[in-house]
Design a protein around this nucleic acid. Structure first.
Lengths: 120, 120
DNA sequence: CAGCATCCGCAAGGATACTG
DNA sequence: CAGTATCCTTGCGGATGCTG
């Protein structure tokens, strides 16, 4: 689903590396600029597609939907579509996604610390 | 230094977003597949260039040095070159880099949890 | 040892227009 | 409202060879 070059150097000894580098295992799932940002937005609770778009105005629709799909197929978020007109779709964190909260929180903490250091 | 499109959508309202999304602030510095992995490798203490290369065999020299430079110019790592022949260069985390430890640790924790869930 | 220079293909990402 | 479809450009990332 996720378009990945089949015979890239990365893929060749991927398994080997996953053993010795847990961080790589994570990166396989949350790499992509917008993914942690989306997860952050969903950490406050579920949001509709349009709410996400408004919350992250700089991401294009293409990138947003693409990352949402990848996050869903990687089991980090859950998509729920109500069969009504007009459509009503919400996204929320899965259990695995919720377990990522410490990562996202740590990122936010670091950002606040770093900004203080800089602009104090 | 870091090649960024000047008039991209991202750049336009960047400041606005940094206010409302701390995670974006972090991503500007650690986005790039290999960066968290490099930081993870350095979290155990300083390493020489060749040690990093051996520790992360799947990254190409180009990508490794490129990410190292970006991490350095973003103030996350410190490069120390001893003026000897042959060259002796070491990389270590800066204070800001060390403050990222909780993020990296949380990633590693999540990876172990997720792998257990899967292969139990 | 620790890089730098160059070439190149392909996927990531952007803009715009359209649809169930 | 919540996406698709399409086109197009940029630059990431890989491979190879060279240098102080």
């Amino acid at each position: 689903m996720t378009a990945i070059k089949e015979n890239s150097t990365i893929q060749e000894n991927r398994k080997h590396l996953l053993d010795q580098c847990p961080v790589m295992y994570v990166m396989e799932k949350i790499a992509g600029f917008w993914k942690p940002i989306i997860l952050f937005q969903l950490s406050n609770g579920e949001k509709r597609y349009s709410e996400l778009k408004r919350a992250i105005p700089t991401v294009t629709e293409k990138m947003l939907i693409q990352h949402l799909k990848q996050l869903e197929s990687d089991g980090l978020i859950i998509r729920t579509a109500k069969p009504v007109v007009p459509p009503h779709v919400t996204y929320k964190l899965s259990d695995a996604g919720n377990r990522l909260a410490p990562v996202i929180d740590a990122m936010a903490d670091w950002a606040y610390q770093d900004m203080e250091q800089k602009y104090q």
